[in-house]
């Protein structure tokens, strides 16, 4: 069994009557990139704050690198680098000065800190801007400086809270690549919180979907799809057109499709149809369409991405 970097058991946090995090149990293994995915206000940030001991825990326990965060927050903070969403810097100071300050707060000897600061600035590609005041930094540069700020203390675990917010697509790509490289190279555990599906999909080994303080599902993206769509895991999309041989009306065709074994639902509109089913129905469906005298324009099997998983969860959430 691999070493656990983050272990959360039965974590609960309430704000008055409102339950922000509800009996959360989660563990992240060492060296893993874990994506915490959820809409705004789902309790992602609150969970992260509790990991760092920045807010009180109502019940449950949080352990980071085997240390209890609520009892020994300082020990945890020594090992964890945290990049808050919309990170702030002392704008009157240069990037290097900001880094040096953090290094001193971590009690790194000055000479060593200077060396590490320059190295990390180089790693995040800010060497040229190191002597400029942070006030003149662009959004992307600040975010990269934030990453340098996290890296300077040589953390074992990095927690990133919506780090790509406000970055342009190219910036996001570079930033994510940087994180992946660092994690793989140094074996750092990364907890990545976001509501951007695609970024999480690109980056993370495992994903936890977090809605209203609860972890709805957890696992690899592929296994999540299976978990979720086990009932009607297959979807066919296609379009048909009437020909002179057509023997059935569109409605009747739809009905026939629905009558087929394994089909759960058929939506037909203007010759376009979507079929959800328990098993792969592409062959019988196409046979039916052709036998009915329709021309089959297109038929495609749909692959599930995180998008669908996400939306599916929201649908379920609404129904509840």
């Amino acid at each position: 069994m691999a070493e656990k970097s983050i272990e959360i058991i039965g974590l609960t946090k309430k704000y008055g009557e409102y339950v922000a995090v509800d009996n959360l149990t989660l563990s992240v293994e060492k060296g893993e990139i874990f994506g915490l995915l959820g809409p705004n206000g789902a309790g992602k940030s609150t969970t992260i704050l509790m990991l760092l001991g920045l807010t009180e825990i109502d019940s449950g326990s949080v352990k980071v690198c085997g240390i209890d965060s609520s009892k020994y927050p300082l020990e945890v903070k020594r090992k964890v680098g945290y990049l808050p969403e919309d990170v702030g810097f002392y704008t009157d100071y240069t990037g290097l000065q900001n880094l040096m300050y953090v290094a001193r707060l971590n009690n790194i000897p000055i000479e060593e800190a200077q060396k590490t600061a320059l190295e990390t600035l180089d790693e995040v590609g800010l060497t040229e801007a190191k002597d400029k005041k942070v006030a003149s930094y662009s959004r992307g540069m600040r975010q990269r400086l934030g990453l340098a700020d996290v890296l300077i203390k040589k953390p074992k675990v990095i927690i990133l809270d919506e780090p790509t917010l406000g970055l342009d697509p190219e910036g996001v790509k570079k930033f994510l690549q940087l994180i992946v490289d660092l994690s793989r190279k140094k074996g750092i555990t990364v907890l990545f919180s976001s509501h951007h599906l695609h970024q999480v999909q690109q980056l993370c080994d495992r994903v936890g979907i977090f809605v209203k303080g609860k972890l709805l599902a957890e696992g690899k993206i592929s296994s999540l799809a299976e978990q979720l769509f086990s009932k009607n895991a297959h979807t066919l999309e296609g379009s048909v057109a009437e020909t002179e041989k057509t023997s059935l009306s569109m409605k009747e065709l739809a009905q026939k499709m629905e009558e087929m074994e394994g089909v759960a639902q058929v939506q037909m509109h203007d010759g376009r149809f979507v079929i959800t089913s328990k098993k792969d129905m592409s062959v019988p469906v196409s046979r039916l369409v052709v036998n009915s005298g329709y021309g089959l324009h297109s038929l495609s099997k749909k692959e599930y991405g995180l998008d669908d998983i996400y939306h599916q969860y929201f649908q379920e959430e609404k129904q509840i």
């Binding site: 903070k77 810097f89 953090v102 707060l105």
Partner: peptide, 14 residues
């Protein structure tokens, strides 16, 4: 307001 408080408090200082 500058967002530096959470950054500083994420460092190992009481």
């Amino acid at each position: 307001n500058r967002g530096t408080l959470s950054r500083i408090l994420a460092q190992p200082v009481p």
